[in-house]
Simulated scan of single mutants.
Amino acid sequence: MVRAYLSTFNELGIETWLAHDSLLGWWLSGQVLPGDRDVRMQVSEPGIFDLAAYYNMTTFSIRVPGQPKSVRRKYQLELSRFAKAREQSDPAGSADGRWIDTDTGLYIDMYAVRYNLTHPGGRGMMSCKDGGEFRDKDLFPLQKTSFEGVPAKIPHQTRELLVAEYGARALKAGGRNG
Results as ranks from 00 to 15, higher is better:
F134P: 00
E148T: 04
S127N: 15
T118I: 15
Q157K: 15
H119T: 06
L139H: 07
P155T: 07
M125V: 14
D138R: 08
H156E: 06
E148K: 03
K129S: 09
T158G: 03
L162Y: 00
G124D: 12
E148H: 01
K137Q: 10
K153P: 01
Y166W: 05
K144Y: 02
F134I: 03
H119P: 10
P155V: 03
Y115Q: 13
M125W: 11
G121D: 10
F140H: 13
G124P: 11
R135I: 02
R123V: 05
H119S: 14
R159F: 02
G122Y: 06
Q143W: 01
N116Q: 14
F134D: 04
T158N: 04
P141C: 07
N116F: 08
R123D: 12
Q143L: 12
S146C: 10
C128M: 13
S127H: 12
L117P: 11
S146V: 14
E148N: 11
L162W: 03
A152E: 08
C128K: 11
S127W: 12
Q143K: 14
T158C: 09
G131T: 11
Q143T: 06
K129T: 07
L117K: 14
E160H: 10
V163D: 00
D138G: 05
A164K: 15
D130C: 12
G122L: 10
E165G: 00
A164Y: 00
M125I: 12
S146H: 06
F147A: 04
H156W: 05
S127V: 08
I154P: 04
T118Y: 14
D136C: 08
G124S: 10
M125H: 13
G122Q: 10
Y115P: 13
T118E: 14
I154G: 00
Y115A: 12
N116G: 10
E148S: 09
G122H: 06
A152R: 08
G149Y: 05
K153D: 01
Y166M: 03
K137D: 12
M126S: 07
A152L: 05
S127G: 14
R159L: 00
G121M: 02
T145G: 04
K137Y: 10
V163F: 05
F147N: 06
F140M: 06
H156V: 00
D130W: 11
R135F: 06
N116K: 10
P120S: 10
F147M: 06
V150G: 07
K144T: 09
M126L: 15
G121V: 01
T118M: 13
A152V: 09
D138N: 12
T158L: 03
R123C: 02
Y115R: 15
L117A: 13
K137E: 13
E133P: 03
G124I: 04
P120E: 12
V163P: 05
Y115K: 13
H156A: 13
H119A: 15
V163A: 00
K129N: 15
R159S: 05
K137H: 07
L117T: 15
L139D: 05
R123H: 12
G149W: 06
G131E: 09
L142I: 05
D136Y: 11
L142G: 07
Y166E: 01
I154Y: 00
P120T: 07
D136E: 14
E148F: 02
M126C: 15
G121H: 03
Y166V: 01
C128W: 08
F147S: 06
Q143C: 07
N116A: 15
R159C: 02
E133Y: 05
P151M: 08
C128N: 15
L139T: 03
L161K: 01
H156T: 01
L161G: 04
L161F: 00
V163Y: 03
E160F: 02
E148L: 02
